[in-house]
């Protein structure tokens, strides 16, 4: 065997030499420009026709706090209903049964195809269609008594959400490798048990980021329930400015609260993602 040939000349030793930092002139200039623009905006609002003392006074007033509680209660309950419906409809959509498939597709088509505010108004005004509702012979009640703003908002928001969530869930289930179904079948699992034990837990990992998105959308969508008299945050802020005419101040109060809630939700989503990342390499490290 030949020995290794001698190294060629003309390639100096660079070890020990440092790599100089690149000056990022454009970054400095653009940052300065943006700060200037922000300062102008802040000055404009400070000198504009806004009574900031009203903002701070109404920020923690009881009606506003009740409003934010009602907003969160509605967002959580409607999202829970939406996720439940979404999972059921996604399973129906992926089932081999053509009847279930069609029903699921029809549900998604109808509730995605009409505006949410229209659906809320329909639920709220259900009494115009069915004056009394109930189970014949067992129980019945006047629809106006049953269909409170709370129930109308819950059904309207939750059922609408279910249509969107079903597509998110379906995408999650399709992302799980077909081999996982087969391995589950090979140890004797039926379709539903395989979905519940094997496929859905893996789908959750894919599904949580879009669901977090949907939940943030839901928090803000509850403001639409103000049109059917549900006492959520925006509705209560409106009630105050109807009385004292401080429209912009109270809209700022509501806006600040929405921003705060959404800011708190983001780290919560990260915690959930970590929970469902069990067994992935990123966690294993």
């Amino acid at each position: 065997m030949k020995s290794v040939p001698a190294l060629a000349e003309g390639f100096p030793d660079l070890s020990g030499m440092r790599i100089a930092r690149k000056p990022h002139w454009f970054r400095w200039i653009s940052a300065a420009l943006i700060i200037a623009v922000l300062a102008l905006i802040v000055r404009a609002f400070a000198s504009g026709q806004i009574e900031w003392s009203y903002v701070s006074r109404f920020l923690t007033v009881k009606v506003i706090l009740e409003g934010i509680v009602n907003t969160m209660v509605m967002a959580v309950l409607a999202m829970a209903l939406g996720i439940f419906l979404g999972v059921v409809v996604a399973i129906m959509r992926l089932s081999p049964n053509p009847v279930l498939k069609t029903v699921a597709a029809g549900y998604t088509w109808f509730f995605r195809g009409t505006p949410l505010i229209l659906q809320l108004l329909l639920w709220f005004n259900l009494a115009l269609v069915f004056p009394t509702i109930g189970i014949p012979g067992l129980w019945s009640a006047r629809a106006v008594d049953v269909m409170t703003p709370f129930l109308a908002a819950l059904l309207g928001l939750g059922i609408n959400q279910g249509a969107y969530t079903s597509e998110v869930m379906r995408a999650g289930m399709l992302s799980v490798d077909i081999g996982q179904y087969e391995a589950a079948q090979a140890i004797g699992m039926g379709r539903l048990r395989a979905l519940r034990r094997i496929v859905l837990p893996q789908a959750m990992r894919v599904v949580i980021p879009p669901l977090g998105n949907e939940f943030i959308g839901m928090v803000k969508a509850t403001s639409l329930a103000s049109v059917i008299q549900y006492p959520e945050l925006l509705h209560n802020a409106e009630n105050i400015y109807y009385a004292n005419s401080r429209v912009i101040e109270l809209l700022i109060v509501a806006g600040l609260w929405y921003l705060l809630v959404v800011s708190v939700l983001t780290p919560l989503q990260m915690l959930l993602e970590r929970r469902f990342a069990r067994g992935t390499l990123r966690l294993a490290r």
Binding site: G179, Q180, E182
Partner: peptide, 19 residues
Amino acid sequence: GRQRLKTGMVFQRFNLFPH
């Protein structure tokens, strides 16, 4: 499913449950 219990299957790509 009951009949499948009499056989065990080992797959080319393992198909372990990753979670």
